[in-house]
Design a protein around this nucleic acid. Sequence first.
DNA 1: TTTAGTGCAAACTCTTTGCAGCTAA
DNA 2: TTAGCTGCAAAGAGTTTGCACTAAA
Lengths: 149, 149
Amino acid sequence: MNKIDLRPYLEGRGLRRSLRRERVAEVFLNQKGHLTAEELLALVRRRDKKIGLATVYRTLKLLTDCGLAVERKFNRPVSTFEPLFPGRHHDHLICLGCGAIVEFENPSIEALQEEVALKHRFTASHHVLDLYGYCRKCRPKVSGSGKKP
Amino acid sequence: MNKIDLRPYLEGRGLRRSLRRERVAEVFLNQKGHLTAEELLALVRRRDKKIGLATVYRTLKLLTDCGLAVERKFNRPVSTFEPLFPGRHHDHLICLGCGAIVEFENPSIEALQEEVALKHRFTASHHVLDLYGYCRKCRPKVSGSGKKP
DNA sequence: TTTAGTGCAAACTCTTTGCAGCTAA
DNA sequence: TTAGCTGCAAAGAGTTTGCACTAAA
């Protein structure tokens, strides 16, 4: 169980610890997926029937401010949140057919990105790399043309 | 003036040409920025006072379906649209300070991405690479440490 | 006792859609 | 003449916020 102590993040902001906030954070930080606020709500409700959507949003915002989460909008209107662990990073392959999300890591790409930032005199903070396409199952049938893969 | 003929995209879809649609497409395809629907509406209204927001959205959707535009959601709730020209592609450096967007191209990164997709048996369609950071002017001052500007 | 946290519902923002009239084919 | 296109306004979807109550410090 990935127990993260929120206290250092709360202190200095005049924030209190609260049962519900800790619960949301715990459930969120202990999964690897890409959750929407609604999905996270459903997970937390297994343990706490009365928790509301607003609290989930508020906690996700807090975690994002603390650098413990990232908010992503893939190709849909809903935001997807993902836990962020220092030093670890991955990018995404997104299937335009079935919506599957595959994570990957590629140090060579990371290095090149660093180079690009440097060349433009940017202090790199983070990045987002999404490769969209079709997974093997969803590969569209090309009619007529003998288009090569 | 970058005049693109929409006919090949309209035919076969049972769609008609229309003055307003052509106008929206023309204005959109002849700028390089990253426009929201509202911003595009304002631009088009300079020439056509009566055009509505819905038409702009509908046309942007059409262009996106045709592969002539991409919809992006940087870190805000509004969608940003950008014209897409076949064979040309660039990525973005986004300054977290002033919001400046710098475009760059890097064939080595592109090649590596292709490799990644292949390795995961994805048919790559397009990708999104955003590098977030601080430009030279906005580089944050780190208090306490003697970090040089 | 003070003030932050919470659920609920209303408000907000962005985008899509239904409809009646307009227009290309 | 037929069916797609349009503006308008209303509806939707996702997220934020105001408020009265609860609970941490």
